[in-house]
Structure formats: structure tokens, C-alpha cells
Write a protein that binds this DNA or RNA. Sequence first.
DNA 1: ATGTCGGTGTCTCACCGA
Length: 246
Amino acid sequence: MLQRWLAETEPDIVTLQELKAPDPRFPAEALAQLGYQAIWHGQKSWNGVAILSRVGSIHETRRGLPDDPDPAQSRYLEAAVNGVLVAALYLPNGNPRPGPKFDYKLAWFDRLIDHAATLLASGAPVVLAGDFNVMPTDRDVYKPERWQNDALFAPEVRSRYADLLTQGWTDSLRHLHPDETIYTFWDYFRNAWARNAGLRIDHLLLSPSLAPRLVAAGVDRETRNWEKTSDHAPTWIELAEPDGAP
DNA sequence: ATGTCGGTGTCTCACCGA
């Protein structure tokens, strides 16, 4: 499915989340045949993140967050690619709430916020891309009242996402489509896709030095109809060249 | 509260996390 999507849409740079496989099982050769270099940070069964590029080499800058609450979980990978610092992240789900998994989510989120501040202070053009497991506002969930106590919509989690935006990050999709209903995820159960009972939990946050280059953003919803598909749909942005060229 | 999916080990079903 990933290979079909890459071949059809030819994105320049891709981040992947939930590889759910140890490093040796990463399909590096198949991706190379499609023209993509890759770095990856896998883990058996759970988590796992990767960065792909067909526009130049990938210079890894970090794997795992500073003071990562659990370095055994592969949730963060960061690299310089084609003049942009790209972070692939997979924020913990956090359910059930309350409980240790929710505490872990908050701890991880706090370390991300700290590191995001460091990145902003550097002035570099940065995109934080991945599954944040947060619906930022009521507009980002099909039935907000049903999700009030869920770890993906809890006040503690939404406030942390808001803290990121207050730091200076731009939520790409919401910035270009302020009033639109946009979802990136539909549960496998409850017939969620057919009912369009979706969530917007996959985000691309841009640093102030990169945000002016944002020209388009969207979700490739059609992949959700494919056989054996993911419960997430590819979420993308288009950036202008640094000099303003298309 | 419920539901679906894929992976794993308890191993041809039961469980877990998402």
C-alpha cells in the first residue's frame, strides 16, 4: 500500500509512523527501487518511525527525544533533508485515561515541547510531522462530546498541543483550511469510514522560518478505500522553494 | 460500552494495543 501511494503521488519527503517491525524488516530495497533513500528507527510489534527522501540525502540529527521517558520505544526520528529539518514523531496513544499510559503520554509530550522550543530557538526551518494522537479542537472530531474523556482529546493533551502552537508553530492544514472538516484517521470499527466518523490527529507543524513557504495542504482520503488499508490516510503539505520559486 | 485489525505467544485460539 505504501509503495502504491508513493508511486502514484511521488512525494519528495515522507515520514512514516507505526512501522511495527524491527529494523531488519524495513523494506529499504523496495523503497530504493522507487527512488527513495530512507532512515528508520524500528521496534518489534509496536511504534517505529522513518524518514524517506527522493530529493537528496538524509542527514540524521537525532533518534529519540532528549530525556526520553522510555528510550526503548521508537517514537522520534529527526534529519536534515534538502534544507529542511524534518522530525518524524509518533506520540503515545495514552489510553486508558487515567493510568500509567496516559501519564507516559503527558511525559512524552512535555519532552517534545521542550525539544520543540530548542528547535525554534535555532531558527532553522523545521517541520514536526506525524501522528500526534491529539484532536486539537472540537472541529477535529466527528462527535466531540463522545471523546471528552479519551486520551486523544483530554484537556491535558489539547492544552499541550495548544502550547506548541503558542511557541510559534503553524498547524499547516488548519492554517490553510480554517473552517473545513478535515480528518486523517477513521477507526476500523463502528463502521467509522463509511459514516465519516473521523479524527484529525496527524499534523504537520511548521517553524516560523518555514511557514511562509506553505502553499498547499491536504489528506489523501482515497487510500482509506484500498484493500487492507491503514486506519490513517496520508496527510501532506506542499512547500515553495526557499527563494519563492514554485 | 462498544467495535475491528494484525501481531504475538499462551500457539490453530486468546490476548493485547491501537
